[in-house]
Design a protein around this nucleic acid. Structure first.
Length: 656
DNA sequence: TTAGGGTTAG
């Protein structure tokens, strides 16, 4: 039943029982049928009712509604304009008045107006009313179906869209090109938690069966759907099969690579687009993904080129581009350049502030991040949930435990932001890193929501740092259930056992890993030299200078040992002789990259290295020694944060 | 009448 709600009755407790049906009258025969032809002509003129329409167009909704109450026979077009006005003005109360009047005048079964009403209620965040309009209309044209799909899918009710989609198929209503795009979008909304694209694949099959395989919009939506599920190969197959690609298709595929850990391919595809796509030119959306790829790769020189392009094309007034630039510079280790971009921005939104806060955070400048946060609040910018993830993360990297706890409180009490698992994960990390594991565990046990893998992962990571076997086992038990195929969790537990010299347990975890067919992610470090990126890893030795690199490392290691460097071999998960362990740690990818940098970067130039995992204790100590020994500045970004090594010290003050 | 790609964190 359709229920009328007045503003104060929007709370469910006040729901009136009155239904629109009480007001509904039979559709009156139109005047044209009852009156003489000449009169009907006059009436048609009146029906157009220019005054209501012109008032709507002028945005004078109240006056238009006032006239409506005196109008004898409002037309479909009049209602269309009124509905649009209500949506535009965000006036739910007026929307109810217009809707009630429309029913009174017998338009309640008009499919065109039903479509408009559904759109309007979506705009007004009254999805319940959009549903009711859909439920009550008997003649459901494809427009009506598509309207409810759009409304539900944009409001996050993907599951419902898919159920309706199957219902539509069952009753034999054929889909059109719009239906497919909405249904595909709904898959992403409904399954984001399950991360399985099987329903999207079914719709993909329908699309092919109905001959839409060369439709640019649908194919682009498919690329994006696969991208959101992390199915890069599927996305690429669809993209490659497209006979016609436009800027949006290229951008979707570039974003797919950039967002799914394939930044090299993102940049490659971008270059391909520039060279091979004819007249397709990138816009701000494309540039954002390209900047993300540069950031992921720490490709500072590439990023600077892109920055130049952005300036030349006048894309530097677009906020998302500027925020992405700030992040790119910071993640490439050029915090100052990021700050310059931020300072030059004419306008800033919450995302720009978040970018700067997290930039300071990953560089270990927690106090600066807090300062920026306070400045942002002082200027009246409302922090978002992500702001708190950023600023809590910054506190965590800098060991600002009490500040972080105060922030968490203020988030809930002052800023009225309900903490999500991300925020709890930050708190667990903040306390855990500071070796307040008991408090961290208490946060988890006090949580009302299910902790989830991020929260347990934070606890396990902290247990690894502080070698807490008991809590580590508890966290990993939950993690093995929640994400059985994440090799990282097994490795962390094995690390904890190894540090505790519980070699039998190490073996047991390794066997578990093997039995599941999982493999430890091998360490990889990379470095940009003269706009080219060189990656180094201990498992493949493709670098032509590898002999030179090894020789340099052996020489440096010996010399540094004389000066007090002691290799930290506890990071090796095998029960081996010390010498063998030392040989293994000397082959870590980060050390290879440092040596490569020493050989290839000019004197005085900062060596910037990026690593795909957390920096190990030995690489950390080694790089501190190297920085003093060779008088070089070395900057390493690991999976979490930056380490600036200078004169034998690290910016993280050994807290990471 | 309706459509596709992007910003910040972890």
């Amino acid at each position: 039943m359709f229920q009328i709600q007045t503003p104060q009755t929007l709370q469910p407790t006040y729901l009136p029982t009155t239904s629109f049906h009480h007001y509904r009258r039979r559709r009156r025969p139109t005047a044209a049928f009852r009156l003489s032809p000449s009169f009907s002509a006059t009436l048609t003129l009146t029906n157009k009712n220019p005054s209501i329409q012109s008032l709507c167009k002028k945005g004078q909704l109240k006056q238009a509604i006032h006239l409506l109450s005196h109008e004898q026979n409002p037309s479909q077009h009049t209602y269309e304009l009124l509905i649009k006005s209500c949506a535009h003005k965000k006036s739910t109360q007026d929307a109810f008045t217009v809707h009630r009047n429309l029913i009174d005048n017998g338009f309640d079964q008009d499919p065109f107006l039903a479509t408009k009403l559904i759109d309007m209620y979506y705009e007004l965040d009254s999805i319940e009313h959009a549903r009711q309009v859909f439920d009550e209309i008997t003649q459901r044209t494809i427009y009506v179906w598509n309207a409810i799909f759009r409304a539900l899918s944009l409001s996050g009710y993907g599951e419902e869209v898919l159920n309706l989609y199957w219902r539509m198929n069952r009753i034999g209503m054929p889909s059109d090109r719009f239906t497919y795009t909405y249904a595909l979008k709904a898959c992403v909304v409904s399954e984001s938690k399950l991360s399985s694209p099987w329903r999207g694949k079914e719709i993909h099959a329908h699309i092919l069966r109905h001959g839409y395989e060369s439709h640019v919009h649908i194919m682009t939506t498919l690329v994006d759907m696969y991208a959101k599920f992390g199915c890069v190969e599927d996305a690429n197959l669809v993209f490659s099969s497209m006979p016609v690609k436009n800027l949006v298709s290229w951008s979707a595929m570039i974003a797919c690579f950039a967002k799914n850990g394939r930044p090299f391919e993102a940049l490659e595809l971008f270059h391909e687009m520039m060279v091979e796509s004819g007249d397709v030119l990138p816009n701000s959306v494309t540039m954002v993904s390209v900047l993300q790829a540069c950031a992921a790769l720490s490709a500072l020189e590439q990023g600077k080129l892109i920055h130049g392009y952005i300036l030349r094309k006048g894309l530097d007034s677009i906020l998302p581009v500027m925020s992405a630039l700030v992040t790119m510079y910071a993640r490439c280790g050029a915090l100052e350049l990021g700050l310059n971009v931020f300072n030059q921005m004419g306008k800033r939104d919450v995302v720009s502030w978040n970018s700067l806060i997290s930039s300071y955070g990953i560089h270990g400048l927690g106090l600066k991040a807090l300062e920026v946060f306070k400045e942002m609040v002082r200027l009246g910018v409302s922090p978002s949930p992500i702001t708190f993830v950023s600023v809590l993360g910054a506190c965590s990297h800098s060991g600002l435990v009490d500040e972080g706890k105060l922030l968490f409180d203020s988030m809930v009490k002052e800023h009225k932001i309900h903490p999500t698992v991300e925020h709890y994960a930050c708190m667990v990390d903040l306390l855990g890193r500071a070796n307040r594991l008991g408090e961290a565990a208490k946060i988890i046990s006090d949580m009302r929501d299910e902790p989830g893998p991020k929260v347990w992962g934070s606890l396990l990571g902290s247990c690894r740092i502080h070698c807490n076997v008991e809590l580590g086992e508890r966290a990993s038990r939950s993690l093995f259930e929640l994400e059985p195929t994440n090799a990282g969790n097994y490795v962390l537990l094995a690390d904890i056992y190894a540090e505790a010299k519980m070699w039998d347990e190490v073996k047991r975890v390794k066997k578990l890993l093997e039995a599941k067919g999982l493999q430890k992610v091998s360490g990889c470090s990379w470095i940009e030299v003269k706009r080219k990126i060189y990656s180094l890893s201990s498992v493949d030795e493709l670098n032509p200078q590898i002999e030179l690199i090894h020789a340099l490392l052996v020489k440096l290691s010996k010399e540094m040992m004389e000066k007090g460097y002691v290799p930290e071999t506890k990071v090796v998960l095998y029960d081996l002789e010390t010498e063998e362990k030392e040989r293994i740690v000397l082959g870590h990818s980060e050390k290879l990259a440092v040596a490569f940098g020493l050989i290839n970067c000019s004197k005085g130039e900062t060596i910037r290295i990026t690593k795909n995992l957390r920096l190990c204790e030995d690489c950390h100590t080694f790089t501190k020694f190297i920085s003093k020994f060779t008088n070089r500045e070395i900057m390493v970004r690991d999976i979490n944060r930056f380490h600036h090594f200078r004169d034998g010290e690290c910016s993280c003050r050994d807290y990471w």
